[in-house]
């Protein structure tokens, strides 16, 4: 049973006609058709429009229109103060001119690593925390939940400051803490080393955003009816077994959602790196991800003037990557996922 049908399977014809009388007069006039048959499929659809209209209107006007207007610039270039249509030339530059393509592939590669760290660290820990928190007789659950969520509500300025202070080789929080457990030799100026900086930042980002998968999974776990778990207990499935065999399959759709949200979030990310490593995503572009690359190009930086044309081309490439990911999820994963109506 993939996507459950929305048709009212067991609705009796009499009930349908009773229902039909209650239908919005305006919509009936508009369609002017009988609504007696196939009630839920051929009902007048005005309410659908009403449900969709506010969201679609605001979204189209304030988001899609400006974005489309900007992305269009990717097909133009500025030549001698004039905006000239140049077709796909900007994309050609982006992918084939070594000056640009090196940066692009570097950013893309870094971005995948950034995403991988989130998938491997943030989501499993988030699920584990949610699983523990959803335990029915756990005391102080609300307290833990709020405490663990606090990092998520902090601004990037504060997160950057706090972690830079902690990890700083100069002010000594991390070095002295490692010293206290005899691991001083493990310390390195992580944020300043090409080989560690990106992973360190990814972990800081994990620390900050772990509350989100935790919340979502927690909500999903709580909405599993007690009866199902009790039925499992009767069959002798308890503890960890109950988690793996009963709960996990039930929360798979939510795990799907957090995965795709992590993907989208990571491929749009930029604030944390911008705030802690600057626009040039140092050291030596080792923390440059698509977001920072795009912002630097689009809005310019220091002596580098903003280039909305190349910037839009990068944004277009990012859009294509994310769209691909979302489509894989929507059509490849979501439609095949078993979904249970609870």
């Amino acid at each position: 049973m993939s996507r459950p049908l929305q048709t009212g399977k067991a609705i009796h014809a009499n009930d349908v006609s009773a229902f039909a009388q209650d239908i919005n007069e305006a919509s009936r006039l508009e369609t002017g058709k009988s609504v007696q048959k196939h009630a839920s499929r051929r009902r007048p659809r005005l309410h659908i429009a009403v449900f969709l209209a506010p969201a679609v209107l605001i979204y189209t006007a304030v988001m899609i229109f400006p974005l489309a207007n900007t992305l269009r610039l990717a097909l133009y270039s500025r030549i001698d103060q004039e905006r000239v249509f140049t077709g796909l030339a900007n994309f050609q530059t982006l992918f084939f001119d070594p000056i640009w393509s090196e940066q692009f592939w570097n950013a893309l590669g870094n971005n995948f690593w950034f995403f991988l760290v989130h998938m491997l660290v943030q989501n499993p820990i988030g699920i584990a925390l949610a699983a523990i928190l959803s335990h029915p007789r756990l005391r102080f659950a609300a307290l833990y939940r709020s405490a663990i969520f606090i990092p998520t509500i902090l601004s990037f300025v504060i997160v950057g400051f706090a972690w830079k202070l902690i990890l700083s080789p100069i002010w000594g929080i991390a070095p002295s803490m490692l010293d206290a457990v005899g691991l001083k030799s493990l310390f390195a100026p992580w944020l300043g080393k090409e080989e560690y900086a990106l992973t360190t930042l990814a972990l800081i980002s994990v620390w900050q955003f772990i509350g989100i998968p935790m919340m979502l999974i927690y909500a999903a776990l709580l909405s599993i009816p007690e009866e199902i778990l009790e039925a499992g207990e009767v069959d002798g499935i308890t503890g960890m077994g109950a988690f793996w065999k009963i709960k996990l399959p039930l929360i798979l759709p939510s795990i799907g959602i957090i995965s795709i949200l992590t993907f989208v979030g990571n491929f749009n990310a930029f604030d944390l790196i911008y705030a802690s490593q600057g626009a040039l995503a140092g050291p030596d572009f080792s923390t440059d991800i698509l977001g920072t690359f795009m912002y630097r190009t689009f809005f310019g930086f220091q002596l580098q003037l903003g280039d909305p044309h190349m910037g839009s081309a990068i944004a277009g490439a990012m859009f294509a990557i994310i769209l691909l990911g979302v489509c894989i999820y929507l059509f490849g994963v979501q439609t095949r996922m078993r979904r249970y109506q609870l």
Partner: peptide
């Protein structure tokens, strides 16, 4: 200083 690689401007 030690760890100058991670030393920021305000540092």
């Amino acid at each position: 200083g030690d760890g100058y690689e991670a030393q920021t401007y305000p540092d």
